[in-house]
Amino acid sequence: MKLALFDLDNTLLSGDSDFEWAQFLIGKGVLDREVHEARNIEFFEQYKAGTLDIHAFLDFQLAPLSRHSRSELDTWHGEFLATRIRPLISTAARELVAKHAANGDLLAIVTATNSFVTGPIAREFNIPHLIATIPAQENGRFTGQPRGTPSFREGKIVRVDAWLESLGLWLGGFEQSWFYSDSHNDLPLLEKVTNPVAVDADATLAEAAARRGWPHISLRA
């Protein structure tokens, strides 16, 4: 068996689903534009710079989920998927996933973005496994806090290892393993697979990929 892991934002998607979700809620008037837009942009820039405090970001990103019912959130997400996410999915991204699926590889998206936002996107790609930051719930409502280890930087390794262990597998046991990512924040997991692939990479990752002889591909439309 072979393993194919995919980062989501700016990798399979030609954009960032976390950022787009907040902007979507701002556009609907659910979040105050003046208060949230600048903060959303600030966190996005910190992520790109490698200085993001994941816990501060999750406090910001998960709080809106706690203020609304799940049915209301699900209705909004259907609109979000149709208007904001599908336009960010290129034919090349779909074909890459389909190629690995046709080869019988074990597929998973591994993303720092929370599972409420990313679950329907994983289903859109027909990827059966999702390793994402988990928003905590109580009595059917989100609490605004994360549960367990955030799927970010070294946390992605922790979460992938736990997932594979639950299947009776381990990362080193695969004949071949791939991880596709755009971000230098994913270098820890890229270094763990047999086939790391940079995808439309940021400058830091592009430099590291060139230095190490890793392939660098584009999935942009």
Rank of each mutant, 00 (worst) to 15 (best):
R141C: 02
G173C: 05
L25T: 02
K48D: 14
E95M: 07
L164A: 01
R212S: 08
I89M: 15
P146N: 11
A122Y: 15
T91V: 14
I54K: 04
H129Y: 15
R159I: 11
D186Q: 01
A112P: 04
R141W: 03
F60C: 06
Q176G: 08
A63K: 09
I157L: 14
R159P: 05
G168W: 12
R86V: 13
D186G: 01
G172D: 07
A112S: 12
H68N: 11
I217Y: 00
N126E: 15
E207P: 00
E45G: 14
W170C: 13
E45Q: 15
A4R: 15
A92N: 04
T133M: 12
L171P: 02
Q176C: 05
T118I: 11
D105P: 10
S151C: 15
F174K: 02
L130N: 09
A4P: 08
S66T: 09
T118M: 12
S17D: 08
V117Y: 06
H77S: 15
D161A: 09
L8S: 09
F24I: 01
L25K: 01
D53W: 10
D74I: 00
G29V: 04
D74L: 01
E191G: 10
A122P: 14
H55G: 08
I54S: 03
T133G: 01
P196T: 15
L130W: 11
Y47N: 06
N195P: 03
D9P: 05
H100D: 03
T113C: 05
D74M: 01
L65I: 09
E175Q: 11
W178A: 07
N10H: 12
S66E: 05
E191F: 08
S181A: 11
V160G: 00
P215H: 07
H68L: 05
F142G: 00
P64Q: 09
P120I: 11
A38L: 04
L88Q: 13
R147V: 04
L65Q: 04
L189G: 03
L52V: 14
L13F: 08
R159A: 14
V35N: 09
R33S: 09
N10S: 15
L62H: 00
P146R: 11
S90Y: 02
G172F: 07
S181W: 10
G168R: 13
L3M: 01
K99C: 03
L81V: 03
G155M: 02
I127H: 12
L187W: 10
